[in-house]
Amino acid sequence: MRTSLPIAVAFISGLVLVVAFFFRDDSLIGSLRQEFIVWLTIIGGFTLLLGVVSIVRVSWTAVKRRKEGWFYKILTLLGVFAMAIPAVLPVSWSPLFGRSDGTIYDWLFNYMQSPMMSTMFATLAFYIASAAHRAFRARSAEATILLITACAIMLWRIPMGEAMLNMIPGDLPSWLNTYVMGGANMAVQRGIIIGAALGAASMSLRIILGIERMYMGKG
């Protein structure tokens, strides 16, 4: 029962959505599809509660047992509730605890969460520089082509570099855009996208038919 019921649900849901693709929205199966989609958004909303329960359980246990760094867990719990409670209540239910301008939520979002997230993303620039310096080596003919292309593209994407490329005769920037980005890059991207899409479709079919069960813990 623990295996067959989820497989049956997966089969019926998958089948309805696939078949509905070939029927008009105002048909019976089209309406059923729309119902399924609305259910999905509702169920998805409830699953977010699971996350809150998990993080509260793990953090609270750490605080209770005074594990290393337990103080930070208190901050985590405060952060979770400070952001989660206003998010589920109407925007302006309270001038302080709502979500409109000047509320705690607004303040935390604008002056803590947003800058911290931007800072984390900005560290990518440092890591890219370090990874490029370490990994970009002209070890073979292919690696050399890759290296030269990468440097040329980096130059092309900046005004100073574009000016430098323009000094070389033959409209190199336009050539790079047309043949490297719109040619070689695009062909490779499409190859990977087509392969990955087929892989995803095949995996979906295996799931719908109950062949692939590992994601439910059934090998």
């Binding site: 620039a125 890219i128 520089a129 490029a132 310096h133 370490r134 970009f136 080596r137 002209a138 290296l147 990468a150 440097c151 980096m154 130059l155 994407r157 900046i158 005004p159 100073m160 570099g161």
Partner: peptide, 20 residues
């Protein structure tokens, strides 16, 4: 962005000369 791109290109060149 321009300066960082130039820096990365410079680092790649230096790294490769060092490698050879």
């Amino acid at each position: 962005q321009s300066l960082v791109h130039l820096l990365i290109i410079g680092l790649v060149i230096f790294g490769n000369v060092g490698f050879f």
